[in-house]
Amino acid sequence: MTVLDVIVAFLTGRTAALEAILASPGLPVIPLQIVALAGLSESIGQSAILFANRVTPRRFLISLFVSALIYVGGFFMWVFSIAVVAGVLFQRTGMLSAVAGAVSLSYVPLLFGFLTFLPYLGSPIIKGLYLWAFLAQVAELRFALGLNHAQAVLCSMGGALFILLIRATVGRPVIWLENRVRDWVAGKRLELDLKTLLDPARYQRRSDDHDRDRRL
């Protein structure tokens, strides 16, 4: 089975998607392909940040690919945290590849992340995709780990909490490094808050500066 077959199987609601991933030996190539593609798609969808920061076209393209790579790093974090929660709460140990397969399939909805780029509709679309991804993750974890609904929801939400905890504590240097890599690739310090970057008050200040310069 190829990554395309797995995606089609997922979208048509067949369990063959997860079975194929669980059955494939060796490196989790298909899960990584899914996550990388989803990362690239979501990066394109949210590329307004790069435009707003006036990144050059060449750096723009490189930034998209680097974002996709960082996204894959986030996937490993997800797998690790859900595996920890499943092991601690429900004694599902030694099931890392099953968790990886289930979590990777929950990234399939995010393959449509490029739709975030749509004007006005983009913001609600990405929220809908995240909800779909969460529901998919619960469904796939249930199947892969033999959990009931409530247990799968707990695993998923516990994993999210675990990630938040790590990001707020020992993960801070990693986040710092991640941001520096993004800045380095973009060729400038990226302002990630569009509201701050494009605040009309900045325009007012710039206009006032021009007036002052003219008077001087």
């Binding site: 435009f51 076209p57 739709l115």
Partner: peptide, 28 residues
């Protein structure tokens, strides 16, 4: 068409379209 629609504004802002009309401050 909908996906491409923000590109003109974003590309203009990012300075990708050189030679097209820019938005110079009035003072300039």
């Amino acid at each position: 068409a909908a996906l491409l629609s923000p590109l003109e504004a974003l590309g203009w802002w990012a300075g990708w379209f050189r030679g097209l009309e820019d938005a110079p401050p009035v003072a300039e």
